[in-house]
Design a protein around this nucleic acid. Structure first.
Length: 823
RNA sequence: GCCCUUGUGGCGGAAUCGGUAGACGCGUUGGACUUAAAAUCCAAUGGGGCUAAUUACCUCGUACCAGUUCAAGUCUGGUCAAGGGCACCA
């Protein structure tokens, strides 16, 4: 029996308990079925779910359930990206242990996820902050080290003072810390890096193979890798035998226009290149440059500054002597740290030359519109002049010829440059996976032996220290012995960037309990790649680039066969309220718990998918939630009122149906087709849900016809339940069981449609005259072109219009329209 | 500055191939039911015009300007606006 009132608070709990008993969320090991790996980006356990989580996980859940009904063996796991600074801050502010704080949050959020009715196989849960996981993060770090892909090096690194740690380049947004918006400074420190640059070319090349990724994300990654083709050229220092300055340029075609050279203030040979009388000025300039923050330094609006070094270099192409400058518009970490300056053909050089009254030499010209470059640089393509043997060549050709000459004569080379830098993974924080190395006075850097992993986080730490990592306060952690010589050694106190933990978790889900290795190759090869990955656009570079790198590196170490981790990527839009992003500071958040309590999870799921396509931003409205709740009540009532007419064993004689019944059968097939294809193509859940509503309207219309066929009604209502079951998971199962269904609706097959029935028997024919709509007439869908044309001409309205005119031609689009062109 | 994306009613958004613009919903207005309200149900809802009024009909309309076509929200060229990414990367 179906009860009169829809009461989600009661039925949702009941259904979830039922599913637990049936174990329907467990990943099937049935190898006869094709696999489908559906994955949401796992959350940081900050305390409670927010609506962004709800949207993300509902999208993936509906996909997983849909695929399961289509007969796939679905892997749909969940876990926790649980290392990170907020836990440590909570420890500092509230005096709680980061581990306790994190685990408490996990347990609360896990309950919330369950309340949302998500189909997770919790047997595969991974928690990155627990030793059974971070043991393998450490192990993988060691594999990278052994392979030469992890190294320690002194470098200028990004430092966030507020977080008290260094950051990777990818974590600096507009010169600010990605987490706290604090302005990032440069520091010289010895840190651990992963050699992502070794994979720059492959990471770039295989972007084009990622058909299931949005163009915007692919482009962002391409820009981030930032490949450029150029040439290096050696400029010998005048009067010095063994000293030269090597520049990198993408415009070798302008080399005859060089009037000075610029090196970065941090350039390695700068002291050797400075004459005695300029020493003091150069030193002052370098000190000032160091003081600038990244933001100030990178501001293109800032006036260019520099200082003369006093020495001269010789242009190998024409023997000209040009002066050498230090200027902070040259970057030490890109190219060679030195630039040849061509003020006539580069805007930056032009601005600098104007300021310091440096000469300018035009070497490229547009013959049709020659410019003397007195007011601005000419940066377009053109023909070479004043360039010796290369005069008259177009500059694109000249690039190649000039590079060839430099190579032949031994003072230059073609070179490829990337903007991508190596991934800095050291963090001066406590709550992360300790980097598993020790430093021995005799033996230097030593890996902690594998059988001693994991290197556990110490518990005896003082979180109140300022200016250093809390881990350094441990009395038991730091001092140890060298695994090689047995003498005294010190442990590394830095922990790993949490992005390291999250760059391989999707592999661990394939084999989450393995105690002998991070994962079994066979199992990973069985489930990988992730068929559908769903998450926020904010990870377009960070997490997605790191994961791609880690997958490729592990492939080369023989851990797996995949080239790419994520076959299809859906980047969902933000959840907004009143036009701006939900945030605590704005006070426009909506707590999922409240929605579950007042309306139930099915309403929340329905609403979060209903109004916008998943890729776009979604504006939360209380009225919209209310509307979805009303719709569910309406559906409930439909089943309540007709329960006596519904039978699960309906039989339909398709050849012998009344007109109305035939219509409903056709509308049912149309609904199945439309909903199936909207889910399959781009996951357009908003149109799926509008089709639910339209289809419900059609069924209600049928209930008003004279002769209701209970078999046809049953067919329609059971089909509706199945179509809605991936979204409204609790309600559909409750109704199904109350109608006498055995087991759970979620074990049923996805409904199929008959192509012949996806079209109405009568269609509306649009009649146009000169492209304007003039009449609509109902015709049989079987009518041929001539019949359509004749019907159109018979229309009284059409007759009025064509009276006294000549018909020039008639266009007939079968099953759609007739357009009559008259004069 | 360079690159990308997006511009459709009061709002969210529909509209496989160029073929009825505004599906579906929110909101609003009117009505039914009710002592009243809520809930529910019914109807109307892009602008303008015509009409005493209804049915009907005409006309304009998918950021703007042009073009291709029997036919353009959709294709081409240009302009503008918003959002995003990159940015002294030589």
């Amino acid at each position: 029996m179906i009860e009169e009132l829809y009461f989600p608070q009661k039925i949702e709990k009941k259904q979830r308990k039922f599913w637990d008993e049936l174990k329907i969320n467990k990943t099937s090991e049935d190898i006869s079925k094709p696999k489908y790996y559906a994955l949401s980006m796992f959350p940081y356990p900050s305390g409670r779910l927010h609506m962004g989580h709800v949207r993300n996980y509902t999208i993936t859940d509906v996909i997983a359930r849909f695929k399961k009904m289509q007969g796939y063996n679905v892997l749909h796991p969940m876990g926790w990206d649980s290392f990170g600074l907020p836990a440590e801050n909570a420890a500092i502010q509230k005096g709680v242990n980061p581990k306790d704080w994190t685990l408490k949050n996990i347990s609360y959020m896990k309950e919330q996820l369950n309340n949302l009715g998500l189909m997770y196989d919790w047997d595969r849960e991974v928690t990155t902050c627990l030793p059974d996981y971070y043991k393998w993060t450490q192990y993988l770090f060691q594999q990278f080290y052994k392979k030469g892909l992890a190294y320690k090096s002194e470098a200028a690194v990004n430092w966030c003072d507020k977080c008290g740690t260094v950051l990777a380049n990818e974590q600096v947004i507009d010169g600010k810390c990605w987490r706290c918006d604090n302005i990032v400074e440069k520091k010289y420190l010895s840190q651990w890096f992963l050699k992502i640059t070794d994979y720059a070319q492959e990471l770039l090349d295989s972007i084009d193979k990622l058909d299931g990724w949005g163009e915007n994300v692919k482009l962002m990654q391409k820009n981030w890798i930032g490949k450029s083709q150029g040439t290096t050229i050696d400029f010998k220092v005048k009067g010095e035998k063994n000293l030269s300055v090597k520049v990198y340029t993408t415009r070798p075609d302008t080399v005859y226009g060089v009037t000075y050279l610029v090196v970065a203030p941090e350039y390695k040979d700068i002291e050797k290149l400075t004459t005695e009388e300029n020493k003091e000025a150069v030193e002052t300039y370098r000190k000032n440059a160091k003081r600038l923050t990244e933001i100030e330094r990178l501001s293109t609006a800032r006036e260019k500054t520099g200082v003369k070094l006093g020495t001269y270099v010789i242009n190998p192409f024409n023997g000209e002597e040009v002066p050498l400058y230090a200027a902070d518009y040259a970057l030490v970490e890109y190219g060679t740290g030195a630039v040849m300056a061509v003020p006539a053909h580069d805007e930056r050089d032009f601005a600098f030359a104007k300021k310091y009254n440096l000469p300018l030499k035009v070497v490229i010209q547009n013959p049709e519109n020659p410019s003397d470059c007195k007011t601005e640089a000419f940066t377009d393509d053109g023909i070479l002049i004043n360039s010796g043997e290369f005069d008259g060549l177009n500059n694109v050709e000249a690039k190649e010829k000039i590079t060839q000459k430099a190579t032949k004569e031994g003072y230059g080379n073609a070179q490829t440059q990337y903007r991508l830098r190596d991934w800095l993974i050291s963090r001066q924080r406590y709550w992360g996976a300790p980097i598993p190395v020790v430093y021995c006075e005799n033996c230097g850097i030593q890996l902690v032996p594998e059988d001693q992993l994991p290197v556990l986080l110490p518990e005896d730490v003082d979180f109140s220290v300022v200016g250093r990592s809390p881990i350094t306060t441990s009395k038991t952690f730091i001092d140890t012995t060298c695994p090689k010589c047995g003498k005294k050694a010190k442990r590394e106190t830095d922990t790993m960037d949490t992005f390291m933990c999250s760059s391989w978790y999707y592999l661990r889900y394939c084999d989450p309990k393995n105690e002998k290795k991070p994962f079994d190759k066979e199992l990973v090869d069985k489930y990988m790649n992730v068929d559908q990955y769903v998450g926020g656009i904010e990870h377009a570079i960070l997490h997605l680039l790191y994961s791609r790198f880690v997958t490729k590196a592990l492939r080369d170490m023989g851990f797996l066969n995949s080239d790419e981790p994520f076959k299809n990527l859906l980047t969902q839009g933000m959840v907004l309220k009143d036009g701006s992003k939900m945030s605590k500071s704005k006070g426009n958040t909506v707590d999922p718990d409240e929605i579950f309590e007042n309306y139930g999870a099915d309403t929340a799921r329905l609403f979060i998918l209903s109004d916008s396509p998943p890729q776009r931003d979604f504006d939360w409205s209380d009225a919209g939630v209310e509307g979805c709740y009303k719709f569910l009540n309406r559906v409930w009532k439909l089943y309540y009122q007709n329960q006596n007419k519904i039978s699960l064993d309906y039989k339909i004689d398709f050849n012998n149906l009344s007109k109305d019944s035939d219509k409903l059968v056709r509308l049912t097939n149309i609904a199945i087709k439309k909903i199936t294809s909207d889910i399959e193509h781009e996951f357009q859940f908003n149109t799926v849900i509008s089709k639910y509503r339209e289809y419900v309207n059609s069924i209600c219309d049928y209930l008003n016809v004279e002769e209701i066929d209970n078999n046809v009604l049953s067919y329609a209502l059971i089909t509706l339940l199945k179509l809605m079951s991936p979204v409204c998971v609790h309600m559909t199962d409750e109704l199904y069981q109350n109608l006498g269904g055995k087991g759970s609706i979620h074990k049923l097959e996805w409904p199929k449609y008959d192509e012949n029935l996806t079209q109405m028997s009568d269609i509306t024919l649009v009649v146009m005259i000169n492209g304007k709509l003039r009449d609509k007439i109902t015709v049989s869908s079987q009518a041929n072109e001539d019949e359509l044309k004749n019907k159109a001409l018979e229309s009284p309205k059409v007759k009025d219009f064509i009276l006294g005119k000549t018909i020039v031609k008639t266009i007939v689009v079968p099953k759609k329209l007739v357009n009559i062109v008259i004069k």
